[in-house]
Design a protein around this nucleic acid. Sequence first.
DNA 1: ATGTTTATTATTTTT
DNA 2: TAATAAACAT
Length: 743
Amino acid sequence: MDLLQGLNPAQRQAVEAVDGPVLVIAGPGSGKTRVIVQRIAYLVKTCGVRPYRIIAVTFTNRAARELRERVHRLLGQSVQDLTLGTFHAICARILRIEADDAGLDSSFTIYDAADQTSLLKRTLEDTGIDPKRFSPGALKHAISAAKARLLTPAEFATTRANYFDEVVLRAYERYEERLRQSNALDFDDLIMKVVRLLEGNDRVREKYQSRYVHVLIDEFQDTNLAQYRLARLLAGGSRNLCVVGDPDQSIYAWRQADVGNILNFEKDYPGAQVIKLEQNYRSTQTILEASSEVIAVNRERKAKELWTENQQGLPITVVDALNEQDEALLVVHEIDRLTKEAGRRFSDCAVMYRTNAQSRPLEEAFVRYGLPYHLVGATRFYERREVKDVLAYLRLINNPFDDVNLLRIVNVPSRGIGQRSLDELARWATGESVPIYTALQLLAQSDDPDEQSRSGPELTARALRSLTAFRELIDSLAEAAKQRTVAELVEHVLTQTGYRDHLLASDDRGEERLENVLELRTVAEGQALFDDENALGEFLESIALVSDADDAGERPDSATLITLHQAKGLEFPVVFIVGMEEGVLPHIRSFDDPAQMEEERRLCYVGMTRARERLYLVRAYRRAAMGTRTTNPPSRFLADVPKRLTVSPSRRGRDAVSTPSRPESGRTATRVGTLVLDQTPAPDLKPAPAPFQAGDRVRHEIFGDGIVVTCGVNGVDHEATVAFRGDVGVKRLLLAYAPLEKV
DNA sequence: ATGTTTATTATTTTT
DNA sequence: TAATAAACAT
């Protein structure tokens, strides 16, 4: 089999360039994944490199899984010897293996964002920082940023520039102490600690540098300093570092990603081969050209010449909606039409938006018209309360010093351990500089008469009894864990802690919650393959670094609702981008910073380039945002899409009512304009002459009779201010939406 | 210890 | 506006 077959010249070059540093700039839809897969296969099959000597790093589990599956198809079982995973998963593994040299206990717990916040709140109490003046969120972000820049508290101290940094430093120092005491690491630690370890420990560094002869990093534009340094260290032995990415798709600067890492690659690696993948296999010419025009406006970029052999395709549909409900209905109608008339499946369609809040009216419209959809990343499995509770028990069994998880479930289900007692216990533990679990152990000892001299926490006899019972519960669970599979342990925990009964009793959705917990058990059963003594640890690690239980699972045919960020790396035949408005996309928070504005533009570009055949850019004239209505001008990005590539269909309002396919019974279907797609580009929409004048008497279906006060143009529509009779009062109505008739 | 009221906050969130 | 968390009262 010829591994180079079917590759274009640039792709082939990227596969064959196996010696020395290589930078692959991969435009959207340019076959990037294919190149990575073929390159690995080429290294193994043609160059005779042992898979064991190759490391490939991704950002997402999704990407790692896809790579693994595709490499497996070419190489078979030898994929197992590859090191292939996310930055975090690979680092966690290294840290467990090298725990001694890293100064860690190998059973460390990995804290997710919620755990982090929880810990940080306790930190603020310790340090007397007022959470109202300095939000835990902002401090968390600052600490995370420091770690991404590889700054320890001591190093951060030397760079601090203002009072905020001063506060951050205080929080950071204490936060680190608490993490250490809990034998826990946060996500950023995973990377930072590995970098520190490799930099500071010759044996460990040489071990990994001599092992890995070929290093491959995906989505390099999204690396932060810590990840960049990690890549550098890993490739330090061979200099065979291949990085793949696209600066135009860098959308995570707010998480310390530094595009400079990819832009300056040639400087950092003199003699690096630079290969550009510019042929696009995904989109129509129209879509490619439109998106290229949008991204070309950015100043901080290197030009690329994307091209495609694909068809010209359909023009891009640019539509104005009246408000977010209208926008949603319009999208739903069009998806309905496409599935009926254009032979599309729902799963061909994706609706993308800037902020999660925008998903709501969309969801409502899908529900109302009974069209199937799914929301990506809405309720992440491992973030559900009941799942986190059970996991907290498991984590505690694995690492009893984990204060965050202990505090989470110490009184769930309630065991008579109130906030008072807990505060007192925590205060005492803090004073003694011990984790809470250790404090519980000391409590038991101070029962001994000879230990009475020590001043223990001031607890009531009742509280003391409850706390002791809790410690015994945890100890007995830890004992039970030794001779059980993880699935059995989940079962055991549910019973012994009373959590099952608690779930069923507490809530009317208890059954559903229990289902979720049992799903966790099912996941554990799938992992039963490991039966070494650290099965629990491995299980916990495998889920600490993923957000969804089964996002690989097949879904029934349904449309996708997704944020633009999450859409990166995906593609759909039909894409709707909604909220194409100033203040939404670009987001208002980017207005005063040109760099952020460029990132918004890249985000728009990412969205547009997800589309294979049909692209719709939709904006709403008005939008409800955080309680207030706003009227937003069209997004500046719309103006950068050449007019010759777009159609703006006329929307016939009141008279053209297409009945939605499956209206939910019991609901009145709202009258709505139908989207009419002409293939002939419509001239710019101009509103018809005003149908009403001030003084006209009018009738509204719901509000009754009234008199027009004013009637003016509002975007492509007319807005009338009407004084209605009775208590209804004065209303402002958009005429395409509100059925008004003259009397 | 649990329901009720008030307060807070709202950009994106690969791990 | 509306969802969620903390504070509060019962």
